[in-house]
Design a binder for these strands. Structure first.
Lengths: 194, 194
DNA sequence: ATTAAATGAGACAAAAATGTCTCATGTCAA
DNA sequence: TTGACATGAGACATTTTTGTCTCATTTAAT
């Protein structure tokens, strides 16, 4: 529970920023401050400029993801098991992930770019291992798999927000969808052959 | 090829709007006009206000999706086959779909809301039919499936844009991922049982 | 050649957003 | 109580964005 919320003014602001900007990409700083129950002046005092706000939100998102991933892989041996655990663990911070994906312009920030690069590297290594262990179709590009991973989190965020699903089921469904697809499996035939 | 591009100034502007706003949610009208190779005054003359621009972009996206879906289901009998065809056909307009999903605020426009509602209804009926025909896991909520469908398109858009994949393969992969998942299938076991 | 339609150039005002002040107020700890 | 500290209230200048003019210039059709 360290990074998820700390109830400091800064954390309230960062949380509100994710929520508001996901709903209205053009929201003003005044909108965000209001959603955090705080005046705009305070936002400037505590965080600084808009650029710094976006940067902090992104860094916080990456921290959350890091923490979730680290806890998730503990005690798992097979790469595919670690990956499934990661997907499930990332669902609760799907909003933050979503924010990262919805705002490609902030990837230009060197600090952000470095972190994202690091995340991708770790994930790619894990996917490669899962492929070697025969659990993931080798002909699917890593970039596609990672994009799909984020996509499923995105789906989880949307559905959970719409209130159509319990947060707990969302993790299960995300893992099922990404790794198993939505169809019933019959006699082991796959769509791509192989 | 009717709605995809017509080379009129309006179409150039709408196309540029999708592209620029997906990359920079806070892009100004000047940015969009410039990306369309046109002056901002022309944007105002041809389209009108920012609100009208967003509305037109959304409507155009929905038209493209309609057209793609209609063509896709032709001659297909089983619901699952129609769904797969739809997913494949939607990949080329993934950018427009993405725009719709990234901008929840425009769903409040009644005209847009009605169209989206209609799309969802059609898709839900198709999914229900696929469930009845035994091709889709009944325990996965429709809302989840539709969100995942858009999510996979989203993944397709990202990956294609990053240049990591040919546009043609993207359709195949999207269908594979959504319906079959990314894992190798062994002895027909599914994650959720059932 | 002439006309009509579309676009650019340039300017303009109004609105909105941003960032920074100062001063007042409240709150918590020593 | 006092004194640091965080926040609110209010104002301010600056910048950006938006929407609308007028008047050229181009282009295509007649």
């Amino acid at each position: 529970m360290s990074t998820l919320q700390n109830n400091t003014t800064k954390d309230k602001l960062l949380e509100a920023a994710v929520r508001v900007l996901n709903a209205q990409p053009r929201a003003s700083l005044a909108d965000i401050a209001e959603a955090a129950g705080v005046k705009r002046v305070t936002l400037h005092r505590v965080i600084g400029t808009r650029e710094e706000l976006l940067r902090d939100v992104a860094l916080r998102a990456l921290e959350q993801m890091d923490e979730a991933c680290l806890n998730a892989v503990k005690g798992k041996r097979k790469a595919i098991e670690q990956l499934k655990a990661i997907v499930g663990a990332l669902v609760p911070c799907a909003d933050s992930c979503h924010f990262l994906w919805k705002n490609p312009d902030i990837w230009q920030e060197p600090e952000i770019a470095r972190e994202i690069e690091r995340h991708n590297t770790v994930l790619c290594e894990l996917v490669d291992r899962a492929k070697q262990e025969g659990d993931i179709l080798s002909l699917i590009p890593n970039s596609w798999i990672i994009a799909s991973l984020d996509a499923v989190l995105y789906a989880a965020a949307s559905t959970a927000k719409a209130g159509n699903i319990a947060s707990n089921d969302a993790s299960t469904l995300a893992v099922q969808t990404l790794f198993g697809g939505i169809t019933k499996k019959v006699k082991g035939a796959t769509l791509l052959g192989a």
